[in-house]
Design a protein around this nucleic acid. Structure first.
Length: 231
DNA sequence: CCCTGATTCGC
DNA sequence: GCGAATCAGG
C-alpha cells in the first residue's frame, strides 16, 4: 500500500483525533502500526503523549554524579571580557539542592478544598469525671457539609460533551446508536423517545418495518451501525 | 506479557 | 520516503 492523499488525509484526521497508531493502522489497512507512526512523524504531526517521553522530567543528574562531570557550558562568551572568570569546577559536586518539585504543576490550588482553619486555641475545662466542658458557642457542627453536587462521569472529550453516551441512556431518550461502537465519537441518538418504544419516532421508523405482502420487493433497510464494517 | 509512541537505519 | 526492528515507559 502506498500513501495516497486520501490515506494521508485520514491518517492526519485520526491522529489528531487521538486514535492510537494501532487503531489508525487497523482502520487504514495494509499498513503496520510502525508505518503509521513513521508516516505521522514524517508529516510533522508528532508529539502526542507518549509513554516513553512522558518520563522526561529531571534533566540534571540527581543521584550520584557520574564519574565524568560534564563541563558542557561553553557558549556565550561574556562580552566585557575584562576579567577571566574562573570557573571552579568541583569534580565531585554535591547534588544541587533541588527544590523538591515532584509535582509538575501545582497551579490549581482548590480554594474550597481547604477552608482556612484559624485553629484558635480554645479554652476547655475538664469537668469531674473527665467530661469536656463546653461553653455556649463551643459546639462545632456535628454534621459535615454534604457534598452539594452529584458526582458525574466526566466526558472523555469536549466534543463528546453534548453527545449521548452509554451512561446517559434512560427510558425516555432514544437509544439508536450513532456511529460505530468503540470509536471515539460513538454515541446515541438521545432525543425523546416515541412513547412506549426505546427509540424516537424517526428511529422507530427504521427499527420497526411494517410487514408487507409477500413478493413485495423493497430495498433492505439500513441496519444499525451503518452496516458491517469493512476491515 | 500486553500496550503505547519514538527512534534508528537499511532499503 | 518507507517501515521493520528496536527501544523504553505504562
Amino acid at each position: 500500500m502506498s500513501w495516497t492523499d486520501e490515506r494521508i488525509e485520514s491518517l492526519r484526521t485520526m491522529w489528531e483525533k487521538g486514535l492510537t497508531a494501532s487503531q489508525i493502522a487497523d482502520e487504514l489497512g495494509g499498513v503496520s502500526r510502525n508505518a503509521v507512526i513513521g508516516k505521522a512523524h514524517r508529516l510533522g504531526l508528532k508529539s502526542r503523549p507518549s509513554p516513553v517521553k512522558a518520563a522526561e522530567k529531571a534533566k540534571p543528574a540527581v543521584k550520584a554524579a557520574p564519574a565524568t562531570p560534564k563541563p558542557a557550558s561553553p557558549p556565550p562568551a561574556p562580552r566585557a571580557a575584562a576579567s577571566v572568570a574562573p570557573r571552579p569546577v568541583a569534580p565531585t559536586m554535591a547534588p544541587a539542592p533541588r527544590p523538591a518539585t515532584d509535582a509538575p504543576s501545582d497551579d490549581a490550588a482548590p480554594a474550597d478544598a481547604a477552608p482556612p482553619r484559624p485553629d484558635t486555641p480554645r479554652i476547655v475545662s475538664i469537668g469531674p469525671g473527665g467530661f469536656i466542658r463546653q461553653g455556649p458557642g463551643d459546639q462545632q457542627a456535628p454534621i459535615p457539609p454534604a457534598p452539594p453536587r452529584r458526582m458525574v462521569p466526566a466526558k472523555p472529550s469536549p466534543e463528546m460533551a453534548s453527545k449521548t453516551s452509554l451512561l446517559d441512556l434512560n427510558d425516555r431518550i432514544c437509544r439508536w446508536p450513532m456511529g460505530h461502537p468503540g470509536e471515539p465519537d460513538f454515541h446515541f441518538c438521545g432525543v425523546a423517545v416515541n412513547p412506549g418504544f426505546p427509540y424516537c419516532v424517526e428511529h422507530c421508523g427504521r427499527a420497526y418495518q411494517a410487514q408487507l405482502p409477500r413478493g413485495t420487493r423493497r430495498p433492505p433497510p439500513p441496519p444499525p451501525f451503518g452496516g458491517p464494517r469493512v476491515r
